[in-house]
Amino acid sequence: MLDSAKTRPEQSRPRGGDLLRIDGLTMHFPITKGMFRRQVGTIRAVDGISFEIPRVQTLALVGESGCGKSTAGRTILRLYDPTGGRIVFDGTEITGMAGETLRRLRPRMQMIFQDPQACLNPRMTVGSIVAEPLAEHGVAKGRRRRDRVRELLNAVGLNPKFADRYPHEFSGGQRQRIGIARAIALNPDFIVCDEPIAALDVSIQAQVVNLLQDLQAQLGLTYLFISHDLSMVRHIADRVAVMYLGKLVELAPRRALYAAPLHPYTQALLSAIPIPEPEAERRRTRIILKGDVPSPANPPSGCRFRTRCPVAFDRCAVEEPAWRKRDGERWVACHRVE
């Protein structure tokens, strides 16, 4: 259905294996001060994370605001220059790639943003928004481009007749569909979905999630799904990575993670989610974490979660827990899980 104006023929897309591997990725931002912008500190937004995403799977990256999950997504797409670590996309290392080589790779890695209001140019029609990546990468011209735009709008469930309208004429859910059409325009392999449903109403969220899942099946897409909504993540993810203050604390297949979370932070996070059932809510025992997330400019020594951890002991303050593999598919970084 989405065959015209392809960047590559479908057959060339290999199956199986990991599409993306990141290894010890760090993204530090300098804190500068004064007229000469002297560096006075470092925000350790992403501080050494490693994972891989197999083809046509969804890895959810979850955590609270400020934990670095969005920065991680943007760094993987090379919207930032990583300060350390490696990003390997489809067998090619892209960590230090620049200029035209990087530009030629861009069509294969796309992004869907949280705020569909802010990520669409209000002065461009929907048709030209969706056509822009096609023009930028010289994929289709004239009538073929217009046909491709119609095809894309159809694919995301929008009436192609609306191609001449402006973003403000659409509702939040429809605008998110426009953003999705733009993201799939160049037939990418990999999409970073950065909180794609957080700004939408409950009744619209399900529509957008279903669309993302349909497109994944139709087009063989691989997703990094960044979210703070653990209920939705349980529905959409194959594997889940939990992030806290720039570090991964746990990574596990979805079922295993929700059935028996190992890291105390994952346990607290899951127990904090309200359940839409009064009986179950009354019966539950909650782990209430004390305090707030510390600043990533000055993270605690040892384990970063120790200041809020209900089971922390002296070792946690001195020694940083290693990122260890457990029973095959699970990873966790905690001294209590040994």
């Binding site: 409950v202 009744s203 969220q205 399900a206 653990l230 209920s231 939705m232 349980r234 529905h235 079922r255 929700y258 899951l270 989610i273 359940i275 839409p276 179950a280």
Partner: peptide, 9 residues
């Protein structure tokens, strides 16, 4: 419509 964290749909 609501997905739930305590059960799988």
């Amino acid at each position: 419509t609501l997905p739930r964290a305590d059960t799988e749909k």
